[in-house]
Amino acid sequence: MSHQEERDITGVPAVATFALSLRYGKQLALNNVDLRIPEGAIYVLAGTNGAGKSSVMKSLLNLERPHAGCAEVFGLDTVARGPEVRAQIGYIPESHAHDYGWLNCGQLLQHVSSFYPAWDHAYAETLNKAFDITLGRRVDTLSKGEARRLQFVLALAHRPPLLLLDEPTDGLDPLARSRTLAILAEHLADAPTTVMMSTHHIGEIESLADHLGVLQTGKLVAQLSRDELRTTVHRFVLDVPEDWNAPTELRSLDLRRSRTGRELQGTFIGKQADVRARLSSSGATVRDVSAVTLEHAALALLNDGESRP
């Protein structure tokens, strides 16, 4: 077997799922999910607890087997070519505990390194310093934050083409969070990497992420790039007549009205000029338009998904 395999994967998405469905018993954890993560993207997966974020990652690792549909990583089927797929992935699971907690950090790193021919020992050492890992400590005596940092070293040291980060900053204190994200940004500058991460703190990766996917009880209700977000989702402040209602042909999210009923704020989906025109013709005066943050968009889309059948 060659050390590294050359394959032309130009234009192949890093992650693609095709009508992926997953069941736990009778409960549908993923429902016809069609995920597309372009190569090089930093894709943030938003959703409430139990929306299926972890399940998506687990099915990419073939830890959960799809009930219907399939998934591909760099064009490789996750079930038929599981070992090859997993060789491309650095994974930080939601849980901080490690099955091999009886090893010390150095031993665990050594053990894991032997499974990745691409493991970069010098880089692992750099990461150990950056993440302040004490090699002699037993893994199951680590605090949540320390365990997380060790998981980062384990996931990054082989410079995997795909990182799956499930709540990666969970358990880290604020200082460690910002340091960790800075190291991640550096890592991304050094090696071509696609990232899929789930997080409850979208604000902290606002400037890192360039794609957003929103999962709602197993369904992917939205998936868009930062640029699409910027051109199609806007927050409007309007002066409206008291009996005004939003034009039904406009998709609007979380509308809020002042008590007098004459001022209204809300997020509208569509090209700005288009939305503006429709609002004006409905009798509203646009007072302000602003872009929305990733966090705001995720929340608005989540709220929207919840209110619709």
């Binding site: 077997m1 060659s2 050390h3 590294q4 395999e5 050359e6 394959r7 994967i9 890093a14 190569e39 090089g40 760099f74 070992p83 090859e84 997993r86 060789a87 491309q88 053990h111 032997s114 499974f115 990745y116 021919p117 691409a118 082989h158 995997p160 083409p161 071509p192």
Partner: peptide, 21 residues
């Protein structure tokens, strides 16, 4: 950017590591 896919470990390495661990 060009992605080079990584290889999986060879069987001999896996065996040796399992004996060790």
């Amino acid at each position: 950017m060009n992605v080079t896919l990584h290889a999986a470990p060879i069987l001999r390495t896996v065996l040796r590591e399992q004996v060790r661990i």
